[in-house]
Simulated scan of single mutants.
Amino acid sequence: MTSRMRLEDRECPLSTTVQHVGEWWTLLILHDAFDGYTRFDQFQQNLNISTSMLTTRLKTLVADDLLERRLYQDKPARYEYVLTERGRSLRPVMVALAAWGNRHLTPQERSMILVDAASGEEVEPVLVDARTGKNLDDSEAFVFAAGPAASTAMRSRYTGSQSQRPGRVDGQ
């Protein structure tokens, strides 16, 4: 895939993540993989995606170590695409994206919901801090800061008080 990342964004985890999963078909293929699809024809039929586009996306997902290509038939050679550990670690991200979408729909408009597998009850996913259990939706309690590997530019971005950040007025 051609890189669309700006030079200054190369160290930003959001930018690098979007480079791996930010393409429309990529997210849909991963969604199907989480639903148990593994074969080329299953992805193609379910998504109604062209052969060339699916081939390109699957190659990228394999190169990015999100899917593994495995031979399941010798003659003729046939392959399946299975989530890797790295790919499986994207599940909370996919759940969060779906929950965000559902949050903006009425219950009658939702075509897919997340349910407890044992009880069948609908669940509402939230992101929380593992240490404190606090909900991460609170933009006042949780902010981004420069990490140990941050460049001078990244450190500069996150230096100063909260009220000096873009989009914030008088400490709001």
Rank of each mutant, 00 (worst) to 15 (best):
residue 95 V to C: 05
residue 104 H to K: 14
residue 116 D to L: 00
residue 92 P to H: 08
residue 142 F to V: 14
residue 2 T to Y: 01
residue 19 Q to P: 01
residue 170 D to K: 04
residue 111 S to C: 05
residue 19 Q to S: 13
residue 29 I to N: 10
residue 170 D to M: 03
residue 52 S to F: 11
residue 162 Q to P: 08
residue 130 A to S: 10
residue 125 P to Y: 08
residue 51 T to R: 13
residue 24 W to K: 12
residue 98 A to D: 10
residue 130 A to T: 09
residue 152 T to L: 09
residue 153 A to T: 11
residue 94 M to V: 13
residue 28 L to S: 08
residue 33 A to I: 00
residue 61 L to D: 01
residue 44 Q to A: 14
residue 25 W to P: 03
residue 83 L to S: 11
residue 150 A to V: 10
residue 80 E to Y: 01
residue 23 E to S: 07
residue 67 L to G: 10
residue 66 L to I: 07
residue 45 Q to G: 10
residue 146 A to G: 12
residue 145 A to G: 13
residue 136 L to E: 07
residue 79 Y to V: 06
residue 6 R to F: 11
residue 145 A to V: 14
residue 149 A to F: 06
residue 122 E to I: 04
residue 154 M to D: 06
residue 167 G to E: 07
residue 121 E to N: 04
residue 51 T to E: 13
residue 59 K to A: 14
residue 169 V to Y: 07
residue 83 L to Y: 04
residue 2 T to F: 08
residue 133 G to F: 05
residue 120 G to T: 03
residue 75 K to F: 00
residue 72 Y to H: 15
residue 52 S to G: 01
residue 53 M to H: 05
residue 5 M to R: 15
residue 166 P to F: 07
residue 50 S to R: 12
residue 23 E to T: 11
residue 99 A to D: 13
residue 147 G to M: 04
residue 58 L to P: 05
residue 29 I to K: 04
residue 63 A to L: 00
residue 28 L to F: 09
residue 25 W to A: 12
residue 68 E to I: 14
residue 39 R to C: 13
residue 111 S to K: 07
residue 18 V to P: 01
residue 72 Y to S: 13
residue 35 D to C: 11
residue 8 E to Y: 12
residue 12 C to R: 12
residue 7 L to K: 12
residue 133 G to Q: 05
residue 24 W to G: 00
residue 52 S to D: 15
residue 96 A to H: 11
residue 156 S to T: 12
residue 156 S to Y: 03
residue 76 P to R: 02
residue 17 T to K: 03
residue 120 G to P: 01
residue 167 G to I: 06
residue 28 L to H: 14
residue 3 S to E: 10
residue 86 R to N: 15
residue 117 A to V: 00
residue 90 L to D: 09
residue 86 R to C: 12
residue 21 V to R: 08
residue 130 A to V: 08
residue 106 T to W: 03
residue 79 Y to C: 03
residue 100 W to C: 05
residue 121 E to F: 00
residue 32 D to M: 14
residue 161 S to Y: 02
residue 155 R to A: 10
residue 96 A to N: 10
residue 73 Q to W: 06
residue 156 S to P: 00
residue 104 H to C: 09
residue 170 D to E: 09
residue 138 D to L: 08
residue 135 N to M: 02
residue 121 E to D: 02
residue 8 E to P: 05
residue 140 E to V: 14
residue 161 S to P: 01
residue 10 R to N: 01
residue 59 K to R: 14
residue 29 I to E: 06
residue 22 G to I: 08
residue 151 S to N: 12
residue 117 A to P: 03
residue 140 E to P: 09
residue 52 S to T: 15
residue 59 K to N: 14
residue 38 T to N: 13
residue 8 E to M: 14
